[in-house]
Simulated scan of single mutants.
Amino acid sequence: MSATIYDTPEHELLRDQVARFLAREVEPHAAAWEETGMVPRDVLRRMGQAGLMGIAFEGEYGGADADALTNLVFAEALSQSTFAGFIITVLVHTDMAGPHLHHAGTPAQKAKYLLRVTAGELITAVGISEPGAGSDVAGMRTTARRDGDDWVINGTKMFITNGVHGDLYFVAAKTGTARHDMSMFIVEKGTPGFTVGRALKKTGWLSSDTAELVFDNVRIPADNLLGEEGKGFYSVMKNFQTERVALGAMAIGHCTQALKLTLDYVRQRQAFGAPLWDQQTIRQRLSMLDAKVRAARQFMYHCAWSVTQGHDIVQEVSMLKALTGELVNEVVQTCQQFHGGMGFIRETAIERLWRDARVLAIGGGATEVMLEEVAKRY
């Protein structure tokens, strides 16, 4: 990965640490995880022991108090793996679910859970999407009603990463009649009435587990309310900014690896008596794609830097999510095309990247929704 104007020596050390972890713990084994449909828990615990399962969290709870730029460096470094199921398993924990506890948890909630979250002992998931409400968060139907000293949750969540093998779930539910009146709750695995409806079979991200979650009169203590009652919608919207930057990093990582694999391949692959690289159209298309990726990467880092400056960048992050979600599909599909028949063989990294890239234009906010978020802020 080339340097950016925002880099520090600490960023380079973090990139090196993540690269070593990937080379030692992930790349030699992750093909087997694709078959089993999950990342082994001992690998995630070793990530926690290495200090890589919550660097943005407070130091007193095992984090490193990392700012948005450093957190982006981590997400992009992690995304140099070609196994996106592993990447998303971690990023959901560190950037999409865990931050709800980090931002809104009470001291008692953090003391109970957060040290074990950063240690990789408790794997987290966030329950927002539903069968009829994905990008339209306010359209959810899951409800939570107060009953004495408890809350009782009823409803169904869909497309929940880490849903099958997670331990700690941060669940959004309607707590009033107004469209945006919802709250967040902490639900532990094993709570009576809380079940995995089914594990979902996906086209890509095969080594991550994805589930439908069912809440049937799930009774939890009132202390499991996460943040303010009725303010959950705004917590979700705030956390989407972190999530979308992380997904942008994942997309840029896929682009970087696809271009690297393809440049190596076309220089070696002979066709009509010469390497494919000698074909002008191939050289030029790869060059243009690389230019687009480098430009998007610099924009991504600018977004993270803007967060560190306290700027409101909902519009820019929405642009980033839309841009990178579409770009990764353009890059990976073109690179797959240049691999010819080998690009369609399941054992190849480029074929895996092609399958895994598709969801990046959908998950975390579909491109069309992101562009509407951009347009209404002009």
Rank of each mutant, 00 (worst) to 15 (best):
L22F: 08
L22G: 05
L22E: 10
L22N: 02
A23L: 08
A23G: 11
A23N: 08
R24A: 09
R24I: 01
R24K: 12
R24Q: 10
E25V: 06
E25N: 14
E25M: 14
V26M: 11
V26Q: 11
E27F: 08
E27P: 04
P28K: 04
P28C: 07
P28I: 06
P28R: 08
H29C: 00
H29W: 11
H29S: 12
A30K: 05
A30P: 03
A31M: 08
A31E: 14
A32T: 05
A32I: 06
A32L: 06
W33I: 02
W33H: 02
E34M: 13
E34K: 14
E34Q: 15
E35T: 14
E35I: 13
E35R: 15
E35F: 02
T36W: 11
T36G: 04
G37R: 12
G37S: 06
M38K: 10
M38E: 13
M38L: 10
V39G: 10
V39D: 12
V39N: 10
V39Q: 12
D42H: 15
D42S: 15
D42E: 15
D42A: 14
V43I: 15
V43M: 13
V43S: 11
L44Y: 03
L44G: 03
L44S: 05
R45P: 01
R45Q: 15
R45E: 13
R45W: 04
R46W: 03
R46T: 09
R46L: 10
R46F: 10
M47Y: 06
M47D: 00
M47G: 10
G48E: 02
G48N: 00
G48R: 02
G48H: 04
G48A: 03
Q49H: 08
Q49N: 06
Q49K: 14
A50L: 05
A50D: 11
A50R: 00
A50Q: 07
A50K: 00
G51C: 09
G51K: 03
M53W: 08
M53P: 07
M53N: 11
M53F: 13
